[in-house]
Structure formats: C-alpha cells, structure tokens
Design a binder for these strands. Structure first.
Length: 226
DNA sequence: CCAGACGTTGTT
DNA sequence: GTCTGG
DNA sequence: CCAGACGTTGTT
DNA sequence: GTCTGG
C-alpha cells in the first residue's frame, strides 16, 4: 500500500516539474507526509496550481467524515465497482507529487523502507479527490492514493504499491475521459527505474520530520532480497 | 419497495 | 449517489 | 502507515 | 482489540 510518503523538495522544483503555481506560504517540504494531513495535489479541474487536500478520501455522500481515516488508498482492481470511488474516478482525479514513499516489511521485526526513483527525481502517484460538505456547508477537500500489485523490486517488501505515472501518463490521467484508457494507466511502475533501501524507525512517528528519517541504516544492503 | 452499506491493509 | 440484501 | 487512546460522574 | 489522529 502507501501509507506514508516524502515530498521534501523546494516549491520551485514542483513548480518546474509539474508546471504548476506554488504558493510558498502554503507549501512546506516534508520528509514524513502522513494520512490526515493537508498535502499538495494537482487536480484535473485546476491543473495549473497546487491544491492542498486532506489525505483520506471522504465520499461526497458520507454522513461521517471519519470514513476518510480508512480510505487513504484505493485498489485499482476494483475502482470501477466501488460506490466510494466510482464517481471520483470519472470526474475527480489528481496527481500526488512525491520524491519517495515508505513501506514496512512485516517479519519478526517491522522494518521500514524508502522507495524512490533511481534518478531521485520527483514523480506523480495517481490519486482521486472529493469535496464533502458538513451541515453548515463547510467544504472539506480530500484525496486517496491508488494502489496496485507490486513490481519485482517491491515484491520482497510488500504486496501492494502506489500507482506511479510517467510524464505522458500524468497528462492522460488528468485530461482523458475514456475509462478504458484511464484504467490502463493503473499498473506497476518499471522496476529498473526504481530503488529501495532500509531506514530507521524514526519514520514511524509522523511527528518526526527531518532528513534523518530517510537515512540508510544498512548501506551495504541496497538490493533485494536483503 | 425500503434499509443499510459503501474501505484498505495485513494478519489469522 | 448507488448498489445489495431482504 | 504508525502512535496513542480507549470512561463516567461531578466538581473546580 | 479497535478506533482516532497525524
């Protein structure tokens, strides 16, 4: 799955890479982006700017916004069958910019890993967004990250991974209205363009947010199967 | 027809 | 809102 | 995802 | 164990 990620670059880089307007008073780099936080996304309806939405999708018909705590991810395989996601898939898609994401490998001890592109570039995860209104009509904007099967690199660590789009796919994801074409984007990213390394437990607490949370704890064991 | 659910992950 | 179950 | 809380009553 | 908050 994807329950934590990293977006620790300067606003200028996001602006250049995704061709969006970034307001520096809104954007703060983070080594530890966690569910429940307001985080930057690029929406299909306003693709020229960064929007700040809360991670954890609240469907517009929900009675209780707490459901968002559970909907931080959306399974690609069932996205069209799910009442919670169908409408958003059709009309409200977004990109979630990141320069790393984190997964925990289960074992006798739970070990966190950082996953990134080999070239250390920014990338975009595929997401859905929603607008929910409370009784006073106050709006709440939320999003969810789409997950798919793991690629070869991820398989030793976890049974899911976020959908990462390449540059051409990013445009399609925001602009297409063809369901088949959109669905065809939701596949595992190329393993040979990615890398992974183990990090310390510092990542576990969402309150830790410094460079140290992404420090490699075992420099000699960069390659799977560890 | 109405009522009630609507999710992912991992683990057992 | 939309689907499933009764 | 992980961390941390998880309750009621009445009184201050 | 299960839910909420970050």
């Amino acid at each position: 799955m994807c329950g934590r990620f990293q977006l620790s670059v300067k606003g200028k880089h996001i602006s250049e890479r995704f061709n969006v307007e970034v307001f520096d008073e809104m954007y703060k780099p983070s080594f530890n982006c966690a569910p429940g936080q307001n985080l930057p996304v690029i929406t299909n309806t306003e693709p020229g700017k960064l929007s700040f939405f809360k991670w954890g999708l609240v469907p517009f018909w929900a009675k209780d916004p707490k459901i968002g705590n559970k909907l931080i991810n959306t399974r690609a395989e069932t996205i069209l069958e799910n009442p919670s996601f169908k409408a958003a898939f059709t009309r409200r898609r977004c990109l979630v910019p990141a320069n790393g994401f984190f997964e925990w490998k289960k074992g006798t001890k739970k070990i966190p890993f950082r996953v990134l592109l080999k070239n250390e570039n920014l990338f975009a995860m595929a997401g859905l967004w929603e607008t929910w209104k409370d009784q006073e009509n106050n709006m709440l904007h939320t999003f969810s990250i789409i997950t798919t099967q793991p690629n070869e690199l991820m398989t030793p660590i976890h049974n899911r991974m976020p959908v990462i789009l390449n540059r051409e796919q990013e445009t399609v994801w925001l602009k297409s209205t063809n369901s088949d074409e959109l669905i065809s984007l939701l596949t595992p990213f190329q393993s040979d363009e990615m890398e992974v390394y183990p990090i310390s437990d510092l990542i576990n607490s969402p309150f830790n947010n410094s460079q140290s949370v992404i420090s490699n704890v075992k420099p000699d064991t960069l390659k799977p199967p560890f």
